[in-house]
Computed example of a mutant assay.
Amino acid sequence: MKLQGVFFVLVSLLIFSACSKTKEPVLIQRSDEQLFAARNPKDIRRWLDTNRDIARAYFGTTRFGNDTALVNELTHRVNDKELGVLYDQVHQTFGTLGDLTGQLSEAFTNIREIYPEFKPPKVAAMVTGFMGPDLVITDSLIVIALDYFIGPKAKYRPVGEQFPNYILRRYQKEYIVPAIVFAISDRFNATNRQDQTLLADMVYYGKGYVFTKAMLPDTPDSLIIGYSDRQLTQTFNVQEDIWAYFIDAQLLYQTNPSVKNRYITERPFTAEISTKCPGAIARWVGWRIVGKYNDEKDPGIKALMQTADARRIFEQSGYKGLKDEET
């Protein structure tokens, strides 16, 4: 009976501890609703003057309500029927933004636990018909252009050379928060600026992905790195061949930008290895290296992010292109 009592107390303490974890409150400012409620130039000017931080970050203006060209363009757009269709689709897709606020709250709470000095930025939502970038992320402000992320069923989608299908596939709402958290990881990701090797780039991305996974532990790996589930599975299964190519081609300490870009930047596939090998494959390999180092040494996220020596992380990881169960 005494043991049962002790067990009950321990369980109660654990439950209380879990429930008492204070989540970081997140409020996404519905700048899109405020903007579309402003139907005439006078109201648009007022909106720009009231939301100067958003106007500066998203539209790149410093004139705000006095920016006549911007006022006229926004007035035209908020009264455009076709943009109204896109705006309605945003509301159907995102609703009250509960999914985004919940994920951001989880991430910000976890970041604050490790970095108490972290101040969650203001978050705002925008719909403009792709007038600005998809995401703006600074230390003090995040602007999410929701119209980019409706998904394949959207009547209108972003177009241009910067939006090939292999990238456009990721413009869906579930990719938004992982992308934000990865961007935030940069401020904690110590690097050696003198190290211009591909390995340094690989470890940088790997640390960022490990950080993102730690702050969003239930998020699938595919949403963190942007590969499809099939790509992840295929890449994992042939990683020994990928690693052999990296070693044979002496890529790790390559410093030539044109060579590095073949493996670190976005591409439909890495032709040098295989048409079935995803682009930016060096980022994925970097994630494997840092992940293994993190598993082997268990330094904790803060110490991991503070480690600027990419070569040390690689050498101490012991990564040799093998699957986890074979190491």
Rank of each mutant, 00 (worst) to 15 (best):
G84M: 07
S20L: 11
A190C: 05
Y58S: 05
K21D: 09
E326Q: 14
A308M: 05
W287E: 02
T50Y: 06
G60M: 09
R30Y: 12
R169N: 14
Q231R: 08
V136G: 03
T62D: 14
T327G: 14
T62R: 11
I111Y: 00
F163V: 14
A308K: 13
K155Y: 10
E113L: 11
F236P: 01
F130A: 04
A271V: 14
K23F: 13
I281N: 00
G286K: 04
Q89Y: 03
L135T: 08
Y263A: 00
W243A: 00
A271F: 14
K173P: 05
M131E: 13
L10F: 15
M202C: 09
I281K: 01
D134M: 10
R262N: 15
K155R: 13
E272D: 15
M1H: 12
G206E: 03
V203A: 00
T327S: 12
A107V: 04
V181D: 06
F149D: 06
T307E: 03
T270M: 08
F118A: 02
M215R: 00
Q234L: 15
P299D: 01
L232I: 09
L199H: 00
S317C: 01
G291L: 01
K173V: 07
N51M: 10
T255W: 06
E113W: 08
N294G: 01
L199C: 06
L304V: 02
F8A: 15
R63N: 13
E24Y: 09
D218H: 11
I176R: 02
L223S: 04
R170Q: 15
Y204S: 12
D53G: 09
G129N: 07
K2I: 13
L48K: 05
V123L: 03
V136R: 12
T197A: 02
Y204F: 10
F8G: 11
T68Y: 10
A214F: 00
M126Q: 07
P164K: 05
D32R: 01
S222E: 15
D309E: 06
K119Y: 06
M126H: 04
Q29Y: 12
N189S: 04
K122Q: 14
A125P: 05
T62S: 13
F211P: 06
L35F: 07
A179P: 08
A107L: 02
G65A: 03
T235K: 05
K302F: 00
C19T: 12
S140P: 08
T68Q: 13
G84W: 09
N256C: 04
D88A: 14
N165S: 15
P220N: 09
K23A: 12
G206F: 00
R157P: 10
D43H: 08
V238P: 01
P299C: 03
A107R: 01
V26L: 03
N189W: 05
M1A: 12
Y253S: 09
L86G: 04
I142F: 10
Q254F: 03
V238L: 01
T50C: 04
G318N: 08
Y204R: 14
H91D: 13
P152D: 05
T109I: 08
V123Y: 03
S31N: 12
T270I: 09
D49V: 08
E326K: 11
F188G: 06
P152S: 07
V9E: 11
T61N: 08
G151R: 02
P164N: 08
F182P: 06
